[in-house]
Structure formats: C-alpha cells, structure tokens
Design a protein around this nucleic acid. Structure first.
Lengths: 216, 216
DNA sequence: GTCTATACCGAGATAGAC
DNA sequence: GTCTATCTCGGTATAGAC
C-alpha cells in the first residue's frame, strides 16, 4: 500500500529493541489483513522499514513472529487495577468495556483470532491453549459472580462470551466492510464506550456506571 | 489433509459440469479455511480430484474461481417462497432462520465474507456491491416493516444486521475455535433453529411461530 | 477437454561479507 | 546487528501433445 518511510533506514541506525517493536507492529497489521499464510515476511519487513532477513534474525521463523505478535496484542487486555470495582456487575462491565476499547484501538487482535478460528491448525491449538482458554475461564467465573449477585440477564456464560466476542468485537474487526456498507463504526474511545453500552444492555447490565444492576 | 478420492480420476471420465461443481465445492472449503491469498489452486484441484490446470480452463483465473464460489454460496440464501408469511415479524423471523440454517450447513459462506471483511481489496468492493449491499438494503426495509407493524425491539436496522451476521453466524463460521473451547455448537438443522430462537429473542421477536409478535 | 511439462514469480530461510 | 546474494520450494498460469 504505502512505504513505511521514504525507504529502508540507512545502516544500523536503530536500537535493536525498537526494530523488534516495529516489526511486531508491522506484523500485526499484515497478519490481520492477510492471515498467517497470506501475509509475507517481505511486506512486514518493508512496512517496518527493515530488510526481510532481519525477521529471521530477531525471530526464529515466521511462526515465531506470529506468536510474538499475538502475545503482544493479548497483553493489552490485562487490566492494571484488579478487583477495584464495588460489585461483580460493574467489574464485569468494566472488563467488557476494556475489551472493546482495545478492540477498537487495536483491531488486529480480533482480526487475527477470527482468521485462525475457521480452520484447525497448530496455531489455533496454541492460541486457544495459551490465551483464549484462560480468558474464557475468567469470563465464565466472573459471569457466575454476576448472576450470583442477582444481576445480569438469564444467559449462560458461553452465550455471554459469544455475544461479547462477536457482536461486541466484530464492529471494529470488520470496519473495512462496514464502511463500504455505510454502517458507521467509529473507533474513538467514545465510540467504543457507546458500543459497550449497547452490548452490556443485551447482557442485562444496562448503564451501570454507579450501581443499580439487575435489570431484565 | 486428505485425498479427495484414491487419486486423480483416470481420464476424461466426468461430465464437465460435474467437474466444475466439484471444483467450486473444493474452492469453498479451501478459501474458507485459508482466505483468498492463503488458498492454493493446487490444493483445490487436488481436493476435487482434478489437475491444477483444469482450474484455469474452467475458470479464467483464481479470482474468477473465487467469485464463482461466492456467487454459488449466496445463491443459497434466496428464498423460494417470497412473502408467504402472514405478517412482517414472522417474515423477518423466517428470513433470519433461513440465513442461520444456510450458515450452519455451509459455514464457508460467512468464513469467506469475514476473511475479506478485515482489509480493503478489490474483492471486498465486488463482494459488497454484488451481494452484501443488496442484502443489507433488503434487511433494512424488512426491519422497517417489522417496526411499523409494532413488533420487534427498539433497535436501528444496522444493529439488527450486525447482531444477525455476527452473533448469529459466527457460531458456525468459528466452529473449530469454539470446539477447542468446548463451547457446543451443533450444525444440525435443529441446532440452527435453536440458535435462531436465541438471536430472535435478542431482536424482540420471541417465539413467533404462530403470531403474537411485539414483545419487549 | 484433459493431460504433462514447464515458465515465471514470489515465498521463507540461510550464508557470509561488513 | 545489518546488509547483499542466493538457495529451495511452492505458487499461478500457459503451451502443446493427445
């Protein structure tokens, strides 16, 4: 599409950590747009302003680069303040909003997950075992707390997971398609917050900034 | 993964139309699993029990094969009985169920759409202009009728479109991932019908086999 | 219409000078 | 650590015998 800078940086002119980070940023974009098999290390390197063999130097292989990219994206989901919410319902709502904020600002996360989700592969096995299953467990436990506190709609935890990861996240992951359909899908924090409100409303956790949860 | 049959059919032993259909079936699976760029015409031909150059004979190019594959999948969505429903709400519900039945029996449809949805491309332009925009218009008009009849939840048409295409369809498109998460997602007609009931419930069109629409 | 053979290109990865 | 040069493989597409 477009050159990273004017051309490739001259010579050994960047701290190694910076280059690794630039490669990971570029890899996220390319893997998200073309999938693992469709993405090319040449284009990733070009986007990062580097030469293609640099990838094999800093990462062992294309697959290792992919894993490092995924690790970096999922790390954005860990919330700094654990359990700083007054009740299970607002804690859950805060988690959903956090997820959607990251989904809006880093659409590569859900794009990569959905690219892998449609076919069995060693990458999908790793993705589920390393990242998705722990998250899924966390969400299930948190939803059980919400329900035990009397809040939330009468939905099983798996339905909640599906609603949040599909209806919640795809608005940002599929932004190029929605734009062509003229369905507005802003990615500013305020847009993500508004979308989170809609998702939470389906979950029976209506506005909930203060309290007053259990609706339905 | 696995050979189509024992090996490639001996010689000119299949009507041309059959081979074209077999190639389209194989293409749907491969494009759905690996995306346009990740799929290979060699594997598609192999899966169809044909030789790779046959693809360029029956279809002009990989891209033309892809378009023919998409056309064939979207053709499954056209309902034979138009306007055979007593009221807008049950007509809408029948359309949603039809969509989810096809999504369950032919997961390639939504997989291919989602593969393309994440990045601009000439394929996405064609997909939206040819198939998605007409469908989107149809759904918007049908939802307006539902709302005018006093039925359905207080949601804008675009939200309804998003809910149906994401929460509704991804359960089947992402089945390999959901299986690893041990989230049950059967693809039998009864499973699809049950899922349709859940989706329709979110839309405020609860059971609605007979009538009694407007809930919320 | 179908086959074999192959042209041509771009992929990921490696060697070795600097 | 970074570069150029190159290896090997698999991709799409085409030529031409049958």
């Amino acid at each position: 599409m477009e050159k990273a800078s004017t051309s490739i940086r001259s010579r050994s002119r960047r701290p190694a950590a910076d280059l690794a980070a630039a490669l990971l940023d570029a890899a996220a974009v390319e893997f998200a747009a073309h999938g693992f098999e469709g993405a090319s290390t040449r284009r990733i390197a070009e986007r990062a302003g580097a030469h293609q063999p640099q990838i094999n130097y800093h990462f062992a292989s294309k697959e290792q680069l992919w894993r490092a990219t995924v690790d970096r994206l999922f790390a954005l989901l860990v919330v700094p303040d654990v359990a700083a919410a007054p009740d299970p319902a607002s804690a859950f709502a805060a988690g959903v909003e956090r997820f959607l904020q990251v989904s809006a600002s880093h659409p590569a996360l859900n794009r990569i997950v959905n690219q892998e989700a449609t076919a069995p592969s060693s990458r999908l096995d790793w993705l589920v075992a390393t990242h998705l299953r722990p998250l899924h467990r966390l969400v299930a436990a948190a939803w059980a707390d919400v329900r035990a506190s009397g809040a939330g709609a009468d939905l099983p935890a798996d339905e909640v997971w599906e609603l949040v990861t599909t209806y919640g996240a795809l608005r940002f992951a599929n932004a190029p398609m929605l734009a062509l359909l003229e369905i507005p899908s802003g990615t500013e924090p305020a847009d993500a917050a508004e979308h989170a409100r809609r998702v939470l409303s389906v979950l029976g956790l209506a506005p909930a900034p203060g309290s007053r949860p259990g609706r339905r």
